[in-house]
Simulated assay, not measured.
Amino acid sequence: MPTPPPTGPLVTRATLAEDLRALGVRPGETLLAHSSLRSLGWVNGGSVAVVEGLLDALGPDGTLVVPTQSGGLSDPALWTSPPVPEAWWETIRATMPGYDPLVTPTRGVGVVPETVRTWPGALRSAHPQTSFAAIGPRAAKIIEDHAPDCRLGERSPLARLEAMGARVLLLGAGYDSCTGFHLAEYRIPSPRVEVGRPVRTPEGSRWEVVTEVSISSERFDELGADFERDRPVVRGLVGAADTRLFPVADAVAYAERWLQTHRSREEWVTDDAPASRRS
């Protein structure tokens, strides 16, 4: 059977930038973008056009930030989609390549972050599982000194984005992808877990285990719906994508209160497997 024609709308670099400006994206600001390329329509140029449109809307003084997570660099004992035989676990831990910000690909966050990661001039933070990449004049300040035992907390780019008044752009993405909510998990009483991953050393890769705050995006959609009901969130269409725009600081403050009220300890502890292996 012949391939059906695309349904559109036809989206270009210029129409993306125009829609983003109409939504309220301001030249010179800092954006933490979570995106779904598929939701936009038929994008001429794919993820490259999306990044170009975002940079055009932000202008030369703006900074674009995306999550460039590499959840596959994790303990195989936690993998569920798919699991691997227990007999393989020790070999996987011993031979898994360590994190390299210039080489390690993103996983589970879409194609736009991978495009940003490889963009000329992009900088990427040092955390082996929950890094961020940034393009623009504030990039170095945002991604520097991402602590290896602080996935998404006070010593991560999220706290710097909050402090500098950055906004979150959910470009066709849902609240379940909103990394800013995780910063709230570090500011309230939270369980801690052991997290294993490979790291690079001058002698080669080695396996290490650190103690971390337990994080989970479980119920983030519900949290986001309540946040949107109670706080100002700009909504509109970019291409065909339902898009939201709001300050990082507002999202974190709301999530602190919401999580303490709505999330049980049992939910927290049982949902700490790497997101890229769960989905």
Rank of each mutant, 00 (worst) to 15 (best):
M1S: 15
P2A: 14
P2N: 10
T3D: 06
T7A: 11
G8F: 03
L10Q: 08
L10R: 14
T15I: 11
A17D: 02
A17S: 11
R21C: 02
A22F: 11
G24Y: 01
P27V: 14
P27N: 13
L32K: 09
A33T: 12
S35T: 15
L37A: 03
S39E: 14
S39Q: 12
W42D: 08
W42P: 00
V43C: 08
N44W: 13
G46S: 04
G46A: 03
S47Y: 04
V48K: 09
A49N: 01
V51W: 00
L54S: 00
A57E: 03
P60T: 01
P60M: 00
L64F: 02
V65L: 09
T68P: 02
Q69L: 13
S74K: 01
S74I: 01
A77Q: 10
P85T: 08
A87H: 06
W88E: 12
E90Y: 05
R93Y: 02
T95H: 12
M96G: 03
G98Y: 04
D100A: 15
G108N: 08
V109N: 05
V112M: 02
P113G: 06
P113M: 04
W119A: 11
W119N: 06
G121N: 08
P128R: 08
T130R: 09
T130Q: 07
A133T: 15
A134R: 01
I135L: 13
G136P: 03
P137L: 13
A140Y: 07
I142E: 01
P148S: 09
P148K: 09
L152E: 13
L152Y: 05
L152C: 06
P157C: 05
A159P: 01
L161C: 01
R167S: 14
L170V: 10
G172D: 02
G172Y: 00
S177W: 02
T179S: 11
H182F: 05
H182I: 06
E185G: 08
E185F: 06
S190N: 12
P191W: 07
P191G: 10
V195D: 04
G196F: 04
R197T: 03
R197C: 07
P198G: 13
V199S: 07
R200F: 05
T201N: 02
P202A: 13
P202W: 15
S205M: 00
S205K: 01
R206V: 14
V210D: 09
V213C: 10
V213E: 03
I215V: 15
S216P: 00
F220K: 04
F220D: 06
G224D: 10
A225T: 14
E228S: 15
D230G: 00
V234N: 09
L237P: 06
L237G: 11
V238N: 05
A241Q: 06
T243G: 08
P247M: 04
P247H: 05
A249M: 11
E256I: 07
T270G: 14
D271Y: 08
A273G: 11
